[in-house]
């Protein structure tokens, strides 16, 4: 055996200690933003509420925000789950059957460029004022990015790997389970990183457009702005931002665990 072959060293995981270079830029940025906000709130009191006011309403009635956040989160995750299952199933179908791909893909593209929220009012008529229309809209919005990435990922297996397993007559189901689905995982996680925050957007937009909604942060925003309670509007927006960030963090953590073998997750 020759010495020219050796195991290439694994890229060392950067020791991200609590060095000031890591956190200081963000702190400076937050301070600057806070100062700009405070200045803006004094200059344009009808545009921005004072930060203190936002903090006061949040700390004053946390149960109110948590309850409505829970409603929105349920709609978002429910819609995402339905959208994911549907998109994955259709993705497998169109990657296995070229006929299905030619039939489904153009429709899916048109569906994607159609402003889904525009059908929200009709959905309210059909499904009532509860969470159902919001879940439907969220599912529709999340469907497309997951579908496209799943279909692309399932077809990303290098031809030479496929040939090796073809030469031992692996069945289509075996190729799907052992080769295609694992190959698609990085693509699916990339889609989920888009779809998780998108699901919150979908739920909120649905609440805003579906007149007469009962609960949810979108409804809170809609009611508060009609009563000119700017602090409540921004408190709800802040809660939504935190919710979206936490969801993104959750996907990233799951992705790191599931895709330890994948380079892109080691780099980011």
């Amino acid at each position: 055996m020759t010495r020219s072959e050796r195991v290439s060293p694994r890229r060392p995981v950067a020791a991200r200690g609590l060095r000031p270079a890591m956190w200081l830029p963000l702190v400076v940025m937050l301070v600057v933003l806070g100062a700009a906000w405070t200045w803006g709130a004094q200059r344009f009191p009808y545009l921005l509420p004072p930060l203190r006011g936002v903090g006061a309403t949040l700390t004053g009635s946390p149960a109110y925000y948590l309850k409505n956040a829970g409603v929105t989160l349920e709609e978002a995750l429910g819609g995402l789950a339905i959208g994911f299952v549907a998109a994955f199933a259709v993705g497998v179908l169109i990657s296995e059957l070229p006929v299905a791909r030619r039939a489904v893909l153009p429709v899916a593209v048109v569906l994607n460029v159609t402003p889904i929220v525009a059908i929200a009012p009709t959905l309210v008529v059909a499904f009532g004022f509860g969470p159902a229309p919001k879940i439907v809209i969220t599912a529709l919005i999340c469907f497309f990015p997951i579908l496209i990435n799943t279909a692309t990922g399932l077809r990303s297996v290098p031809p030479q790997i496929l040939q090796v397993y073809q030469s031992i007559a692996a069945s289509r189901l075996e190729v799907l389970a052992y080769l295609r689905v694992p190959s698609a995982l990085p693509f699916i996680f990339a889609a989920l990183r888009i779809a998780f925050p998108l699901s919150v957007t979908g739920a909120v937009v649905a609440e805003l457009t579906a007149a007469g909604s009962a609960a949810g942060l979108g409804t809170v925003i809609s009611n508060a702005s009609s009563m000119n309670q700017l602090a409540v509007v921004y408190a709800a927006i802040l809660v939504l931002a935190v919710m979206g960030t936490l969801l993104l963090l959750l996907v990233t953590i799951i992705e790191r665990r599931a895709l330890r073998w994948h380079d892109s997750s080691a780099q980011s």
Partner: peptide, 29 residues
């Protein structure tokens, strides 16, 4: 399974260990 194919590139599955890559062909077909 009379045929064994070695392509130009190793064509190993990046998510499986070397041992699992080598034993997967036994599991299929």
């Amino acid at each position: 399974k009379l045929i064994g194919l070695v392509p130009q590139s190793p064509a190993l599955l990046p998510w499986l260990s070397v041992l699992k890559n080598v034993t997967l062909p036994r599991k299929v077909n």
